Simulated scan of single mutants.
Amino acid sequence: MKDDQSLGADAQSVDPDVKSADGDDLPVALLKGNRLELKDRYIALDVADSKELALKIYVRLTAKMIRFKNVSFQHCVFDSCYLNKCVFDSCDFTGSRFVACNLHQSSFSGCNFEYVTFERCHIDDDILESEAPSRENLKMRFARSLRMNFQQVGDARAVNRAIRLELEATSVYLKKSWSSSETYFSKKYPGWKRLPQFLKWIEFKILDAVWGNGESTFKLLRAIVVTHVVIAIYSTVAFADPWDIRSYLSNLASAPGVFFGIENPYAYPVWISGLVSACRLLSFAFLTAILVKRFGRR
């Protein structure tokens, strides 16, 4: 098989207006692929150390309690397949696509899921931790594909798990994009292109600290508590005795009234009152967004 460069050179050397000689009246630049479509097949025996199953389109393939060991499924399409209680050990699914498949209780160990996509598949969510690609960019796309898949089948718990993995991979990827000296990041983000990545990382970390990028009620409540503490410290320093611990406690007790706009024990400047109001409105908006997202997945 030719590599990408040789294929690209051949494609540039032909005239796209020239018709092929096989009678299908297509341009010569459109070559027939080497994928074989197999419909309504049943796998009855265990398969090991095989590359013959790669580059196939499987439609309604059936297998139950079958063990696949060191089998290549590269660039395959699994459409409406039933693979129940199967074991996939050290299999290669690079570039494959699963559509409307039932993989219930099937297990995966040491498999390669780079560039794999899932759509409307029933699959156990433990694949997120055990089989995620090692590279952060691929792990991020892998988790995103499974997140969308779990949303389609209505598995709310698995959606939350996929989102956590996606956020973790995104955080590491953004940090490496501006700080890592690895060849991949050096070539993709050379020189000044690392500055936008640094700003994206800063934004991501701030939003993560405030409300977990829309996924953590605890972090949002923590941010609200920190806001109350800041209000108490400012009130004590600006209007009371900063050397008296009782002033801090008293102002901390009155901070909820200030935060929710119920009372103002001191004559706060307009910009301080406006900042507190903005924090209050943002907190309500973030909390509403989290609740809508959580209940919307069910």
Score class of each variant (00 low, 15 high):
155 D>F: 08
252 L>K: 02
6 S>R: 11
231 I>M: 03
43 I>V: 15
194 R>N: 03
229 V>T: 14
290 I>T: 04
99 V>E: 10
7 L>C: 09
207 L>V: 06
270 V>Q: 11
229 V>L: 15
17 D>M: 07
110 G>A: 06
80 S>H: 09
258 V>I: 13
21 A>Q: 10
62 T>N: 09
146 L>Q: 06
56 K>V: 07
87 V>P: 05
92 D>V: 09
49 D>R: 14
225 V>A: 15
30 L>K: 13
262 I>D: 00
148 M>S: 14
217 T>L: 13
77 V>R: 06
41 R>N: 10
283 S>V: 04
199 L>F: 04
259 F>Q: 03
72 S>F: 01
47 V>T: 09
126 D>H: 12
290 I>D: 02
190 P>I: 09
218 F>C: 07
237 V>G: 00
39 K>G: 08
104 H>W: 11
37 E>C: 06
11 A>C: 07
126 D>T: 07
96 S>D: 08
241 D>P: 00
42 Y>V: 15
194 R>K: 13
204 F>Y: 12
6 S>G: 02
180 S>I: 07
79 D>Q: 10
219 K>F: 14
225 V>P: 03
113 F>G: 06
113 F>Q: 06
174 L>G: 08
277 S>T: 11
84 N>L: 14
154 G>W: 05
220 L>V: 04
245 I>H: 00
104 H>S: 10
35 R>I: 02
128 L>R: 08
151 Q>S: 10
287 L>I: 14
138 L>T: 02
132 A>W: 04
29 A>N: 13
272 I>C: 03
117 T>K: 05
66 I>F: 11
